[in-house]
Amino acid sequence: MSETDTVTDRPASAPKARARARLLQGGILLLLFALLPAVLVWFDRGYFYQLAMLALIFVLLAGSLHLVTGVAGLLHLGHAAFYGVGAYIAGLLAADHGIGFTIGLPLAGLGAAAIAFLVALPTMRLVSIYFAVATLAIGQMLFLVMQNWVAVTKGPNGVILFGGIDLFGLEIGSRLGIYYVVAVVVAVSIWVIHRLTDSYYGNALRSLREDDQCAGAMGLDTVRLKMEAFTIASFFAGIAGALWAYTTGYISPVDFDFFESILILAMVVVGGLGSLPGAILGALLLILLPEVLRDVGDVRNMLVGLVMFLSILFLPKGLFGEVPALALMRRHFDAAWPGAGERRVGWRG
């Protein structure tokens, strides 16, 4: 093997690697769209459906925060507020105006993104801890609006919305149908986040985390890139909020408070900063573990805390750290880094 092979092999070009990639990608889709639904149908318990959808919603929340905090390196302490904005847009449109899923879902994402864009304008020039405190304040402000603007949000009583999900006029009432809608929306969203973070665009975002002044000298508009990451992440948080509203039928401000933001942040950190598979694993762990431990009783939350503490202690780079995650992406999800195959080009060519 010549020494250049390490680079030319970068995108999975060999047929064998491509077959492995298909196997892995196919496996994930099979799990999400066949095996898990089969298990759900087999047990046929509403609780399991709720749990599966909750896990998927948090996979999307952690995946979107991964874009901002893990990749672009901006410590964001108010992500749950944008999740709440999406939930309230979807919930209020459904409850007060009878506008359903087909229009409500995109509006929830766009609404959260629009608010994120506006608050990000003055915030993005702040750095490190100052940025974190600013996002904390933004999260608190949005939370207080949900809590206290009773005339619109109905305040602490929350919003009840009836009816399942309508898909272009087609009413989807069955639990399995709703599960499939959530799974498709989350899968597509995660795929978009994957393209954004596991690509040269993602590398540009990573360079902001590493040294944003230096990234500027490379010709990258750092403020603009941060704005994009923040706005796009908030869009997906809004989508997650809408899914939450449609699947539970009831939303209230406490679902979107500071502790929820911290929970999402913990998922990203425990999973591995900068790693999309890590964020997904972190979300699954912190959603499913408390449920698995339900029988343990009152010490359950302490045990969850202990698992978090130990995982950070012994796996500071996360359950699935950035370096192995990027290696996996390059080997098995080649689409994001196409065509490094060509060589022997003059460096000024």
């Binding site: 978009v192 393209r195 954004l196 690509s199 040269y200 665009y201 993602g202 590398n203 540009a204 990573r206 360079s207 990234a215 490379m218 010709g219 990258l220 994009e228 796009i232």
Partner: peptide, 15 residues
């Protein structure tokens, strides 16, 4: 990163 800064890769193209 240097190459991306010079070539440019907007987020929608990355997607």
């Amino acid at each position: 990163v240097g190459a991306t800064g010079a070539v440019g890769l907007p987020f929608f193209r990355a997607v």
